[in-house]
Design a protein around this nucleic acid. Structure first.
Length: 263
DNA sequence: GCGACAG
DNA sequence: ATCTTGTCGC
């Protein structure tokens, strides 16, 4: 893949206020509605997929692991990408990139963005959709890492977060039935009209027993995907685990590749 | 000043 | 994110 908006690439050397200004530009450039070149329905329904004349869409999951130097600091990120088509893994790539800034809530893309772009540039196939570990529109300035990457690359993207950064669930999200979703709307901490639909809490997996339960994922549009479709995709790409397959595979590949460096 | 805070 | 064995439950 290649960068289509070099001017919007996250630059870790910017001042904090400049980063926030760039995020507002990203949010303005982002499209929070469906603008895909494939029918997302083929992802979940094998019947629909078999009816299609086209090849199945390529969905790539992206995740990072971190490397520590002798002093014990996290000085490099290993960004991993796993491209899936149908139920086949068609490519896996990774890149190791130096880190310059620490994790700061709300500024994640300035820490992990460059490593992610490095890894995606290694990919030979062209993904139709990117799934990121983190938020998309569910962000203080509506420009989470999935949105930032989607806009810079101009590719449809979705944010898959394991916890909620901001915004408020319309209802209780405790112990939701599998397959259900609860709207997440903008609150005072978000740079959007109060009540704006930012994404969904999505329950991809749930236990049967009343004893324990699984927390939902927080799914939001990155770029060129609407909130409903983002939630649909999260459910359709989650087979046996809580996380969508591409993201889970990228997660484990990031660890696997890291271990491969040590020995 | 206090609280909240993706990975 | 990361440090990490056993253990509870289906």
């Amino acid at each position: 893949m290649h960068v289509s908006r070099p001017d919007l690439v996250p630059d870790a050397s910017l001042e904090r206020s400049e980063m926030e200004t760039l995020q507002r530009e990203i949010a303005d450039a982002a499209v929070f509605e469906d603008a895909l070149e494939f029918d997302p329905a083929v992802l979940g329904d094998p019947l629909v997929a078999s009816t299609s004349e086209d090849d199945p869409p390529i969905v790539a999951g992206v995740d990072q692991s971190f490397l520590t130097n002798d002093a014990g600091d996290q000085d490099r990120a290993l960004s991993a990408v796993v491209a899936v088509q149908g139920d086949e893994v068609i490519e896996r790539v990774h890149a190791v990139t130096p880190l310059s800034i620490p994790y700061i809530p709300g500024l994640l893309s300035f820490r992990e963005g460059a490593p992610i772009i490095d890894a995606l540039e290694e990919l030979s196939v062209e993904p139709d959709l990117l799934l990121f570990d983190g938020s998309g529109r569910i962000h203080f300035r509506q420009a989470g890492i999935a949105t930032h990457m989607g806009v810079v690359l101009d590719v449809p993207s979705i944010g898959i977060a394991k916890s909620l950064l901001c915004g408020s669930p319309r209802e209780d999200v405790e112990n939701l039935p599998e397959g259900t979703r609860v709207p997440i709307e903008a609150n005072s901490r978000v740079d959007a009209a109060e009540g704006t639909l930012l994404g969904y809490a999505v329950q991809t997996r749930q236990y049967d027993s009343p004893d324990r339960h699984i927390n939902p994922l927080y799914v939001s549009p990155g770029h060129r995907v609407g909130p409903e479709t983002a939630a649909d995709v999260a459910l359709a790409t989650s087979s046996s685990y809580k996380l969508p397959d591409p993201v889970r595979l990228a997660d484990s590949y990031a660890d696997e590749a890291k271990r491969g460096l040590g020995e």
